[in-house]
């Protein structure tokens, strides 16, 4: 009896030992930095099944939220670097060090795929007394501090866009904080705030339905989903310095993961990002596909971090100076 049991354990050991040569030989844990139902969650849950098909393994997705995503990132960074823990994240970690939110960021990870980016748009409530970006600037100049801008806290997209505007065309507004762009856009419809810098995908359905109006696209060209809205560079070419800029989504794995495992993950997600159903969903939410990995992904992340960190620094929002953290000036 005892011998048989021992044999079984041994057999199991041999079996698992042999199988570990083939990655993946067990479920992979996928940590999503943001809550269920949000943009990061939707993108992660949509791409994963297509990547799984190529990978030949199952990824169990979990939302680990809190601390602007830092809790999830730390959990992924604390796991063994064996490729069995993936991090699905957005742009926020690149600002953790600057904002004093944590000691770890994407430099502790290898980008598997930088999937897509969003474009920022400036929207206003329908009865706001301005219809374009220049009109808004004039109104704010005439009524300092009276216009309420929605915000999602320092480091969030609205704060970066507001800092961008401030650096070229200084404005005096009141920033009212919300927990995310969803609640802030709701508040915009109810008149609790006047203007909201948001990502196109979150605002587009409300613009189409005429519940809010778009002032300008924060990009160098019009967005295919909203061809009639003029980009900000049409009236203010000085913004070209920062653009294109936008929040992004990516899949990451801890640094130190074996190269063959990383390669397998990169190939799987690159294939998944080309799936037709996935592309259709991303188009519906007005995201621009990037599908970057390796050096391209590193370059993208580096440029994003440098632009944004210095914007926040110049706006006086940064807690730690970017040059001290080794983030080059753009």
């Amino acid at each position: 009896m005892k011998k048989a049991w021992l044999g079984a354990v041994l057999a199991l050991g041999v079996m698992t030992g042999a199988a570990s040569a083939q990655y993946p030989n067990k479920e992979i844990q996928g940590i999503i930095q943001w809550g269920a139902g949000g943009s990061t969650d939707v993108v992660s849950r949509s791409i994963t099944p297509h990547a799984e098909a190529v990978l030949g393994g199952k990824v169990v997705l979990q939302n680990v939220t809190g601390g602007v995503g830092a809790i999830g990132l730390n959990k992924a960074a604390d796991a063994a670097g064996d490729g069995y823990t993936l991090l699905y994240g957005a742009e926020n970690p690149l600002l953790y060090k600057v904002m004093g939110l944590g000691q770890k960021d994407y430099s502790d990870f290898v980008p598997v795929n930088v999937i897509a980016r969003g474009t920022a748009i400036l929207v206003a409530r329908n009865d706001a007394p301005f219809n374009t970006f220049p009109e808004m600037l004039a109104y704010i100049k005439a009524n300092p501090r009276a216009v309420k801008f929605g915000s999602t806290g320092p480091g969030g997209l609205p704060s970066v866009i507001t800092a961008m505007i401030n650096s070229k065309t200084p404005i005096q507004v009141t920033a009212v904080p919300y927990d995310g762009d969803g609640p802030a856009l709701t508040a915009l419809q109810g008149g609790a705030i006047d203007v909201m810098p948001a990502v196109v995908g979150a605002a587009i359905e409300n613009i189409r339905a005429g519940r809010i109006k778009a002032l300008t696209i924060m990009d160098t060209a019009a967005h295919p989903a909203l061809p009639n809205i003029k980009p900000i560079t049409d009236t203010h070419p000085e913004f070209k310095q920062y653009l294109p800029w936008g929040p992004f989504f990516g899949v990451f794995v801890k640094k130190g993961t074996p190269d063959d495992v990383v390669k397998k993950l990169v190939d799987s997600f690159a294939a998944g990002a080309k799936n037709a159903d996935f592309l259709k969903m991303m188009e519906g939410r007005a995201f621009t596909m990037l599908n970057l990995s390796g050096k391209d992904a590193d370059a993208f992340l580096g440029k994003w971090q440098s632009t944004t960190a210095w914007l926040l620094q110049d706006a006086g929002m940064a807690k730690n100076a970017p040059d001290k953290l080794g983030i080059p000036k753009p």
């Binding site: 939707v42 849950r45 587009i204 359905e205 409300n206 189409r208 159903d277 259709k280 969903m281 519906g284």
Partner: peptide, 10 residues
């Protein structure tokens, strides 16, 4: 969203 619908006022 995942099922390709765009929930919103429309």
């Amino acid at each position: 969203f995942i099922h390709g619908l765009n929930p919103g006022p429309m």
